[in-house]
Amino acid sequence: MSRWDADVAVVGLGAWGAAALWQLATRGVEVIGFERHRPGHALGSSFGGSRMFRITCLEHSGLVPLAHRSLELWRRLQEESGDDLFLPGGGLLIGPEQGAIVGGTLRAAAAHGIDVQVLGRAELRERFPRHAGVPAHHLAVWEPSAGVLRPEAAICAATDLAVKAGARLFTDSRVTAVEPVPGGVELRTAGGAHRVRRVVITVGSWLPALVKGLPLETLRMPLTWFRPVDDDGGFDLERFPVFMRETEEGPVLWGNGCEGGHEVKLGLEGYGPGARPIDPDDDADRSVRAEDWEGVARMLRGWLPGLAGLPDRVAVSFFTRTPDGQFAVGALDDEARFVIGGGCNAHGFKHSSGIGEALADLVTGHAPRLPLDFLDPGRFGAHTAPTTTAPTAQEGA
């Protein structure tokens, strides 16, 4: 009888973990996955019905090739699952020409040969009339390759395909300890211990509890949905596509039109006044306050007339950020027994399929197919492989 329960375990089956599980299983790796809740749950960061996808990654030049690869894998996941996971239709980036959003988008497009169109204020209003109050010196960049991803459906599709390929899934299963043993790793749960050769840890907001020495901060981020005043108010996804819009004062409003039974989804880059650092175990308050939606609501009359002044729904998600705004993806030891993926910085979902592939490469002893050294967690200095988690540590953000 083998001393190992599997070659690899994936702890945390949110967006990145589910993609890694799918990649490993379809390669024929004996893999088991652990999820504190159920795939596609609403207690982490990978929920809310929609996520923006774009190739023009203004956050780092190295993310553009990752976005290209991720789109290929999203399409593959969609084809293999038969689910509608990616809704193409383009996206808008609006703001001052030299601002963070438009300026960064144009630089990324020029550096990587990405097809975009620059729209002046008059053309923007003609094509997308729901965007009002745009200053004369602001521009819009139209990216035809952008679109909307469905997070919950994508996670469930990846885990379902992984199971069909031979992965074993442990849902409603909280890992309480992760410890190195000779030649491998031991995971402890309420149902018993599991020994594997290597582990991928993708636990989202609970990663700082497992991996000491990484400067990760967990934040509370509100999400809001607003109902159009008129039934045909021009806020469907086709006429009001996914967008990011920078203000003169700095805050960035983002969102997308109605689709899939959801109303218009809106939020603030920088996460708004309702965002604050939290401990996801000791301070997991998901109750909604006025400050969670007031900042967005104040913008509607001048920017997006035609939406109700009060939100139809408000939700709270958790996510982690790093000091430099880039992800933490890599091995924590020379043998790659411990591989982590975390620090999504609220812009990581679009890259989930590509990051899952990279995590699968790393944990099976292969170099990632794309240069991702800028995401190596070693850039933060000293860190340690996990030895014991906190008693309440959770998976699945």
Rank of each mutant, 00 (worst) to 15 (best):
D7H: 11
D7T: 15
V11D: 10
G12E: 02
L13S: 04
W16N: 10
Q23W: 01
L24M: 09
R27G: 13
F34C: 14
E35T: 00
E35N: 00
A42P: 07
G48C: 05
G48L: 04
G48Q: 05
G49L: 02
G49P: 05
S50F: 13
S50W: 12
F53K: 06
C57V: 14
S61H: 06
L63T: 08
A67E: 08
H68W: 15
H68Q: 14
W74L: 05
R76W: 12
E79T: 10
S81T: 03
D83A: 13
D83K: 11
G91F: 04
L93M: 12
G95P: 06
P96H: 07
G103K: 09
H112K: 00
G113S: 11
D115T: 12
G120A: 06
G120M: 06
G120T: 07
E123I: 07
E126Q: 01
H131A: 01
A136R: 05
H137F: 00
L149C: 06
P151F: 01
A154F: 05
C156E: 03
C156L: 03
T159W: 02
A167D: 12
L169W: 14
D172R: 13
V181Q: 11
G184P: 11
V196G: 15
V196F: 15
V200D: 15
S205L: 08
P208N: 06
A209Y: 05
P215T: 03
E217S: 04
E217W: 02
R220S: 09
M221E: 13
L223V: 14
F226N: 05
R227G: 06
P228G: 05
D231Q: 06
D232T: 01
G233N: 04
G234Q: 03
F235P: 02
E238T: 13
P251Y: 01
L253C: 06
G257C: 14
E259D: 13
G260L: 09
K265D: 07
K265T: 08
L266Y: 07
L268P: 09
G272L: 11
A275P: 00
D283I: 07
D285G: 09
S287Y: 12
S287R: 14
A290R: 10
D292T: 11
G295V: 08
G302I: 00
P311Y: 03
S317T: 06
S317C: 12
F318C: 04
F319Y: 15
T322I: 07
D324G: 05
G325H: 13
A331S: 02
D334S: 13
R337V: 02
F338D: 01
G342I: 04
S352Q: 05
S352V: 06
S353A: 12
E357K: 08
L359P: 12
A367H: 11
A367D: 12
A367Q: 10
F374V: 11
G381W: 06
T384F: 08
A390D: 00
T392C: 14
